[in-house]
Design a protein around this nucleic acid. Structure first.
Lengths: 225, 225
DNA sequence: CGTAGAGTTGATTGCGTTCAACTTCAGTGG
DNA sequence: CCACTGAAGTTGAACGCAATCAACTCTACG
């Protein structure tokens, strides 16, 4: 892990407009910047909940394992995302967070958070909102998982990824492996591979390794092409 | 809906030991008792978040619909469960809550909750815990949905249902229709029907309409029988 | 008694899994 | 600089779980 600093880098951040970390209330929170490398863990499932994190730069994933099964990728994290809220549940993290690419991340210790809570009346509602949103995001994923077919889930994923990227940039640079992505989507790696090939042949997407761009007609009707 | 009262019925409640509503902090919350009938809605997806609920008696379900798809049952609620927390997300409910059997439910208005928040420092942490737990519950469901086969998901469901029931009682009285249950498990009604038949023939469960009892060897090995 | 909704059963189809072989790519050491 | 190695990704063939469609039975309720 990198050495902690205490600089406000939000001023330089391209996401500062929409980021919770740049919110008035959150800005007052005591926090440190960490710069973990690819493969590092922010926390592992079962560990005591002592901090949560706000991603400024980079990418990460959350996995959870249930008894006897291979782990399931729950979520991919991008800049502005808050990581580790699941720890509020019963005092320990119920998932494992791992860095996918070199990242810059704000770390907020639970201790500092609890202190701030007493002084800043606006903090609790903000946190309720964050937790509520996280909950809804996962229930959406749950709903999609059982309702939609693999292709549609993948397209939804792409659209979500694209929305977090400046519009002028041409396509998306995926930060996760096919294995992780397939796991996240709930299909086998082979299925994902075939799926991408099909969509590519149909002209819905253009693929070059981990670089994928959605073609102009982003709407659903392009499936029929 | 039934007429609101303001009586503390926790003293008479068989679940009072484990129920959040009976927690010191929650007890001080201003709340009213409602007694909705089967089919009533506590709230519908998209409505403004103005209250959450604590179930004392009865059963309910939460459904969500995403664009263009049939609704997905997210969760079934039993006594002690808190309903409507998703509303904290963006100020509106992201799911619909419907009563399945005649129920007695505490209603906590957001206004009263916000008021209490200012006076009771222990309330926010308790709420964080509730929200965190709800989040984790849904991510578990998500993980199971993609990892486990239908039969195992059904058995897990049964075990969960059973754990909320006094041990001396013989078996479980399901409060939901096959349709809802199949939807919740992410399979077709027909599949669920066949599944139940198989398990019954293998001697893993005993079925009589909506009354189901897990046979003595509750452990996984009984699948092999 | 008749109707509607809930649940069951059977036959068929298909999406996605699994297994296996192959290709591509990045990193490492000679 | 190139050969080697292992991981990541692709392709093909065969299988199987669960969906779908359709007909039927059961149950509740008027």
């Amino acid at each position: 892990m990198g050495s902690p600093e205490k600089i406000d880098i939000c001023k330089l951040c391209p996401h500062s407009q929409s980021c919770k970390a740049n919110n008035d209330v959150f800005k007052k929170l005591e926090k440190t910047m960490i710069t973990p490398e690819k493969g590092n863990f922010l926390f592992k499932q079962g560990e005591t909940f002592d901090s949560f994190y706000i991603m400024c730069q980079g990418s990460a994933k959350a996995e959870c394992k249930t008894t006897g099964n291979s782990p399931q990728v729950l979520e991919f994290y991008h800049p502005c995302d808050v990581i580790g809220l699941c720890g509020f549940g019963n005092g320990s993290y119920q998932e494992t967070a791992q860095i996918m690419t070199y990242s810059r991340i704000y770390k907020v210790s639970k201790k500092d958070f609890d202190t701030a809570l007493a002084h800043s009346p606006a903090l609790a509602p903000l946190m309720f909102e964050l937790l509520g949103t996280s909950m809804v995001r996962r229930q959406r994923a749950l709903s999609e998982m059982s309702k939609l077919e693999a292709e549609e889930r993948f397209l939804n994923f792409l659209k979500a990824e694209q929305s977090g990227v400046p519009k002028d940039s041409n396509g998306i640079e995926l930060s996760m492996s096919r294995t992780d992505l397939a796991n996240y989507l709930g299909v086998a790696v082979e299925t994902l591979s075939r799926l991408i090939k099909n969509l590519s042949q149909k002209g819905v997407i253009e693929v070059n390794n981990r670089h994928i761009s959605l073609c102009v007609n982003t709407n659903k009707s392009c499936n029929a092409a």
